[in-house]
Design a protein around this nucleic acid. Structure first.
Lengths: 224, 224
DNA sequence: TTTAATATGGCATCTATGTGTCAAATAATA
DNA sequence: TATTATTTGACACATAGATGCCATATTAAA
């Protein structure tokens, strides 16, 4: 599955430059051109893997966005971009929890290298690109799952749910976490609906239904 | 405890510059001035937290050292220093597993900021998920306990109770304390119910049942 | 030995999860 | 657009599992 990167950059040329390059590297790019748009996209886009954030933004500046992002989703890595090279600024950024820092102008290949480093580290996309176990495999390009080399047809939510469980394999996930990640931040539905989807998913991944474990009083986890 | 940092840099002035600055930041510095010395110190110094590694070294170059360090101790973060700004080199470094990359000349404060970032990360990733004693281990992410490497299935209260006992290992806990912490302050039940849960827990952690000690007329404690 | 505290087995009750079903929402098709 | 198929979310009920408490046995201390 491709990693989704949110690029927050007001200079349209620069933003597109980044986008075009990262697209060729097989990332999925979401662009925001000011702070408000960034906040909006951040909350309404599922499964953002990483944020590239320019410091100099109109309306709302990068540091303030950084603080909000890191408060809400501390696990999503953030790379700060700035034209300034002032040390105090940089430190400020690090202290607020930026994961990396790149001074403009920069070389695209370095950007890609740093993105890779951060994504490899973060739990979020540890296994995003290739999921392949002896009982299940994923062809992310084709958007298909295979159980014992036989394709299983999943609905969109089932697909997202399974990906999320697999990305966080062996981690007990609460229903709230699942809801926030799979359904999105703004969804306020019945948590037990997850049970229904797990039921359906289990049926479809038969005979490996019990790979999806119930963690009583917590939620679910997948063991691979 | 102070973090120990191995600085591998052949230019003595630069090495001392780094050392002096990092010492004021309360790090403990070990200096190596060539590749052989670096290897020697790396293997013979306990608990190195981080390595700062210059690419341009006499005898044995930085990339080769990096490979060796990362093979032997992948969890120790490495920051690469280089005067070169060639992209291909940088990428090479990242691919070999360097955790960060700083081009000379650099600002000391930036170095410190990156060190902090890396050390926080490695500490977090080490401490949050697993706790081990010689007879029992806990994977809190997976929400699982293991006795002699075999998983023991605990109910939610048993799990919380055991966590609480372990957090306060070797401390005698009153039934009231246990009730308040595990059941919550708003719970008004029979204190002797704890006995029942201890009974069940002891059975499950067999043959280490007597690690949970009864402290007569007080409550319980766990010894590890 | 007596007394007080703890250990244990069992059971009634309570809680969380599994499952079938259905209506509403959405997507696909004619 | 109208019609049909699929997907989704929610609920009620069934069920497995967890919990709390009690009566009785056992142990430790005085």
């Amino acid at each position: 599955m491709r990693n989704k990167i949110l690029v927050v950059e007001d200079e349209i040329r620069m933003s597109n430059l980044i986008k075009d390059f990262l697209v060729t590297e097989n990332y999925e790019i979401i662009q925001a051109f000011d702070g408000d748009e960034a906040i909006d996209l951040f909350y309404n886009t599922k499964n953002i893997s990483l944020v590239i954030l320019d410091v100099n933004l109109p309306i709302r500046d990068g540091w303030s966005l950084l603080r909000e992002f890191k408060t809400e989703m501390p696990l999503v890595p953030v790379i700060m971009l700035t034209a300034r090279s002032q040390t105090s600024d940089e430190l400020f950024g690090f202290d607020l929890g930026a994961d990396d820092y790149i001074t403009k102008p920069f070389n695209m290949k370095i950007l890609v290298a740093r993105i890779r480093t951060l994504l490899n580290k973060s739990i979020i996309s540890e296994t995003t690109s290739k999921i392949e176990y002896n009982w299940i495999s994923l062809d992310s390009m084709a958007h298909k799952f295979y159980i014992e080399n036989k394709e299983v047809i999943l609905t969109p939510i089932e697909y997202d749910l399974l990906i999320y469980l697999l990305k966080n394999k062996n981690i007990a996930l609460t229903r709230e976490q699942i809801l926030n990640s799979v359904w999105g931040y703004d969804y306020y539905g019945d948590e037990r609906t997850i049970d229904t989807h797990v039921k359906r998913l289990r049926k479809k991944i038969s005979p490996f239904s019990d790979k999806i474990k119930t963690v009583r009083s917590i939620g679910y986890t997948i063991e691979v």
